[in-house]
Design a protein around this nucleic acid. Structure first.
Lengths: 290, 290
DNA sequence: CCATGCCATCGAATTTACCGATGGGCGTGA
DNA sequence: TCACGCCCATCGGTAAATTCGATGGCATGG
C-alpha cells in the first residue's frame, strides 16, 4: 500500500470518477485506473462500483476512506514534526473574528512578527462557524472564536471576555427607547456571524422579531451605517473607539448576562502544535492582561 | 514522502546502521542510502548522523521516529478495516495466562472456532506483563490478564473472578500448619508470573521470606510436584479438578481479600477491533456466566 | 442514431528503483 | 605503522515500475 495509491483512491472517491480524479491529479485516466486496481488487488476487496456515470465507493471503500484522510494528515504532521526544531518559523495560519482582530489582535500580531521574524503569519477572518470549520479541516492551526465551543476534536482555551453593547445613532437615549423605534434595522457583518444570532435572540427576548437586516462587509462600514442612523448593531463595547465617540454613535450597555461573550482560542486536539503556534499562544496569553 | 522510505528510515534507526538495515530489508546498502537521502531531501533536514560505526538519529530523526511507527500501524489498520466486512474471518491472535486458558478458555475457544470457522485463532500464553507488552506492540489483538491494569493506551473489561488458594501435599491440614513447615518451597510456573509475586507477598505478610523456588513450565508439572510434596503453590482453587481431588492435593482456602484475583480482557484503545475480535468478546462475555 | 462521458486495456516511452562495484574515512589489531 | 574490517557515499548499467496516449466497449441523452 503506497501513499500515492491511497491519495489517488481518496481523490477518486471525492470526485466520484477516475477521469475527474485524473484531471485533478494532473495525470491520465489509465493511470488512476491502474493505481486503484492495484490497491484493490493488494487489499483483496473492491473499493469502487464502476458505472457509466463514474465510480462510487463500495462498503469496503467507505471503510477505507477515513483512513486515507488520517494517513494524509499524519504524513503531513510527520513532516512538520521533523522539520520543526523548536525555533518558530514557517507559515502560521490562524483565524479570528473580524471584531477580535480589530479589537485585540493588532498589537499582539505586530509584536509577534517582530519577535519571530522567520514566521510568515497568515490571519484569516470569518465567523465562528467558518473558522471552526477551517480548523477542523486543518487549514488553520488555530482560531480566535466566540465561546462556548463544544467539540470533541477541539481544544479551547479562554482568552478574552468582551462586553457586547447595542450601538445606535445618538438620537436614542436608552435601550428601551431604542427598541420602541418602529422601523428598526439590524446591521450585521455577515450571514452566519455569531453576533447576529445573539442580537436576534436578544431582541426576541424583548418581543421583537422579524426585523429587516442590512449586511456590510467591514466593521467600519457598519459603524458608519449605525452613525448614519440606518439601524442598530451588536458589537463589543470597546470597539467604539475615540474616533466614534464624538457623539456619532450611542453605546447602550446591556445586562451582564447578555453582554458577556468569551473569546476562545481553539485548535485541533490531534494536531501537532508547531513551534510557531506554541510561541504564538504564549505571546497571546502573556499579552492578554493588557 | 513514501511509506517505503519511512519504513527503511525506521529500520535504519532501529538497527543503527544502513548496512544492517539493508540486510534486514533484503536489499543492498546503496539502496537504503538513497531512500534515506531522498527522505532527508524532501524534509529538508538531516535525519541521521553518519559515522564509522553506523548511523545515529539526529534530533529531527528522533522527532520523526514516532510518526514512522504510527504510520505503519495506521496503514496496517486501514488494510484490516477495508478487508473486514463484518463477518469474522482471518487471524485472531489473543493472549491468556496459562491458568486462565486451562480453567476458563477451553470451552469458549472450542465453541468460538466452531461458530466462526473462517477465523484462525491463535492463543499465546504468558505472564500478565508479557501479554500486555505484546498487546501494546500490536502482536496480539487482546489478552486475558490479571487485574488490576492501569495503562492509558489499554482498555480493560473485567471478565472472571478467581479464588486463589494455597495448594500443598495432603499431609498438611491447615494453612497455619503448612506455613510452619521448615523447608517450604515455592513452586512457580515461570519467572514474572503474577501468582508468584502474589504468593511471596502473601507469605511475607505472614513473616515468611526467602524461600527456595522451583520453576516448572506447565501447570500439570506444578500440580504433580505439589502432590509429590515438593512444595506449595498458589493457584485458582477450581484449577484442582476431580483428577487431583482424590486426596493427592490439599486445597487451603485463603481470606477473601487475599484470594480474589480478577481476570480482565485488555486491548489497545487505539486499535481497530476486528469483527473476529468483536465476535470473540461477545462470545466470551456471553459464556462467562457459566 | 450519433455524440458524449465513463472505464478497461494495451504497448511504447520514460522515469524510477535496484544492484554491484568502487572509493574514502576511521577505528582495530597484528 | 600498516593492513584489515566495517561503515557510508557515489556511480553506471540494468531491470522494473510508472506514465502516457490511443483504442474499444458501454450506457445515456439529445
Amino acid at each position: 500500500m503506497d501513499t500515492r495509491d491511497i491519495a489517488t483512491f481518496a481523490t477518486v472517491a471525492r470526485l466520484g470518477g477516475m477521469g475527474r480524479a485524473a484531471r485533478a491529479l494532473n495525470t491520465v485516466q489509465s493511470n488512476v485506473t491502474q493505481r486503484v486496481r492495484r490497491l484493490e488487488e493488494t487489499l483483496g476487496v473492491a473499493l469502487f462500483e464502476r458505472s457509466r456515470s463514474g465510480a462510487r465507493l463500495t462498503a469496503a471503500g467507505a471503510r477505507l476512506m477515513p483512513y486515507a484522510d488520517r494517513l494524509d494528515a499524519l504524513l503531513e504532521e510527520a513532516g512538520r514534526a521533523a522539520r520543526d526544531d523548536g525555533a518558530p518559523r514557517g507559515i502560521l495560519a490562524v483565524g479570528a473574528l473580524e471584531t477580535t482582530a480589530a479589537l485585540r489582535l493588532s498589537p499582539l500580531l505586530a509584536s509577534y512578527v517582530a519577535a519571530h521574524p522567520k514566521v510568515d503569519l497568515v490571519l484569516r477572518t470569518g465567523t465562528t462557524a467558518e473558522l471552526i470549520e477551517r480548523v477542523l479541516a486543518r487549514e488553520l492551526e488555530g482560531a480566535f472564536v466566540c465561546g462556548p465551543v463544544a467539540h470533541a476534536d477541539l481544544a479551547a482555551t479562554p482568552l478574552f471576555e468582551e462586553e457586547l453593547a447595542l450601538l445606535s445613532a445618538p438620537a436614542h437615549r436608552s435601550v428601551a427607547e431604542l427598541l420602541r423605534q418602529p422601523d428598526l434595522r439590524l446591521i450585521i457583518l455577515r450571514a452566519g456571524c455569531s453576533y447576529r444570532q445573539r442580537l436576534e435572540e436578544l431582541l426576541a427576548r424583548r418581543g421583537i422579531v422579524g426585523l429587516r437586516r442590512l449586511e456590510f462587509g467591514t466593521l467600519e462600514a457598519i459603524l458608519g451605517a449605525v452613525a448614519a442612523g440606518l439601524g442598530i448593531t451588536l458589537m463589543p463595547r470597546t470597539l467604539v473607539g475615540p474616533g466614534w465617540r464624538g457623539g456619532r454613535i450611542a453605546v447602550h450597555r446591556l445586562p451582564k448576562a447578555e453582554a458577556r461573550v468569551q473569546t476562545l482560542f481553539v485548535r485541533r486536539r490531534d494536531m501537532l502544535c508547531s513551534s510557531a503556534l506554541l510561541a504564538f499562544q504564549k505571546h497571546v496569553s502573556k499579552g492578554k492582561t493588557r
